[in-house]
Design a protein around this nucleic acid. Structure first.
Length: 214
DNA sequence: CACCAGGCAAGTA
DNA sequence: TACTTGCATGGT
């Protein structure tokens, strides 16, 4: 079976089992960007608490968050962990949008993929996964997001080698699937869901996994 | 108690 | 380039 067929089969199985995921779980593109930084190496449940703190304080928007002192921001996002680091990273992103786009969020999000990605990666605190999450889920651009679950699931099912890096995995998907943001969106969301349900590091449930026997 | 969770940057050799 | 360490909360 070809690589393209295998990847398509994985997608079909996950979708049949779990249905559409409606990702990213956020109300606005701005909230996607905030969540993308907050969820770095962190359980989404903890991120939700932090996001809720910001929303209840009326801070989940560009202007109020830009005006908030970094030390105060850190307190609001405390439940997400690494709160001092992440407060600084959020400020780096906000500063970039202010300096280079005069706080025009629309203009920032409407940039073409290659330059937009390089630009995001130049911001301290935004690495490959965070950049790609923003590109796909906030800007709706066709880039495949790779994360720890993606890597683990592919290794468990012997589709890649353990030491495969981010770009290799990303190219695996993008070289063998149609270049469509809607497909990449759904595919990554399904991988995370399958990872959470069946491919945990400590106690996997391979018997129930829809990907068994690939 | 130990281990894990939708990473990233900085330091070292 | 390749490895190591710090960052930190909340759940199992």
């Amino acid at each position: 079976m070809s690589t393209a067929d295998t990847l398509q089969l994985m997608y079909d199985r996950m979708l049949a089992r779990l249905g559409p995921q409606h990702w990213w779980p956020a109300e606005t593109p701005f909230e996607v960007m905030v969540g993308a930084i907050l969820t770095q190496n962190t359980n989404w449940k903890n991120v939700e608490r932090a996001i809720d703190n910001l929303k209840r304080a009326g801070l989940m928007a560009l202007t109020p968050l830009s005006e908030l002192p970094v030390a105060l921001l850190a307190e609001y996002i405390r439940p997400a962990g690494y709160y001092n680091i992440k407060a600084g990273r959020l400020k780096n992103l906000l500063e970039h949008i202010r300096c280079h786009f005069s706080n025009d969020l629309e203009a920032f999000l409407e940039q073409p993929l290659p330059v937009f990605r390089e630009q995001l990666l130049s911001i301290k605190g935004i690495g490959r996964e965070t950049a790609d999450s923003i590109l796909l889920y906030a800007a709706n651009l066709p880039i495949f997001v790779v994360d720890a679950y993606t890597h683990r699931i592919l290794v468990r099912h012997q589709l890649i080698d353990e030491d495969c890096d981010y770009e290799m995995i990303q190219e695996l998907f993008m070289d063998h699937l149609p270049c469509e943001s809607e497909l990449y969106n759904q595919y990554h969301a399904l991988l995370v869901r399958v990872g959470n349900l069946y491919c945990k590091k400590k106690k996997p449930d391979c018997a129930a996994c829809p990907l068994q026997g690939l």
